[in-house]
């Protein structure tokens, strides 16, 4: 019981991660894929922040010299990772717009069918 509840934040990480992967595998809509990818990346942010959390700790800013504080390094790291994630999503969305312009669809299976035809010709 303790392992399940005590580690519930890690369970959430795993659930989010698997949900993200599942969307990527099971959904053909490119937008949904990007959502899946974001969910997946979010789970990683969650993982990092969880690691830095110290029971009863505060942020080590503006409070003078606190005795216990959460690890600030992971927050810094994850800020960077979030920026990267946003950039990735932006590029992906831009690509989806272009794909929609040229293929008239954003369903991956339909695109693949079109591409198979092109390969034959």
């Amino acid at each position: 019981m303790n392992t399940i509840l005590g580690l519930y934040n890690y369970w959430m990480v795993i659930i989010l991660m698997m949900a993200g992967l599942y969307i990527l595998i099971a959904r053909y809509n490119l937008i949904k894929k990007i959502i899946g990818l974001s969910v997946f990346q979010t789970s990683i942010f969650y993982l990092y922040i969880t690691m830095g959390k110290v029971e009863g700790g505060t942020a080590p800013i503006l409070t003078g010299d606190p005795a216990t504080y959460s690890n600030p390094v992971v927050h810094v790291l994850i800020l960077t990772a979030i920026v990267v994630g946003v950039a990735t999503t932006a590029v992906a969305l831009a690509l989806i717009v272009r794909i929609h312009e040229t293929y008239d669809t954003i369903e991956d299976d339909e695109i693949k069918a079109i591409e198979m035809l092109e390969e034959d010709s």
Binding site: L21, Y28, K33, D109, K112
Partner: peptide
């Protein structure tokens, strides 16, 4: 062939 995202993932 060019694999789709789904199968790759």
């Amino acid at each position: 062939k060019g694999w789709g995202v789904n199968s790759m993932v």
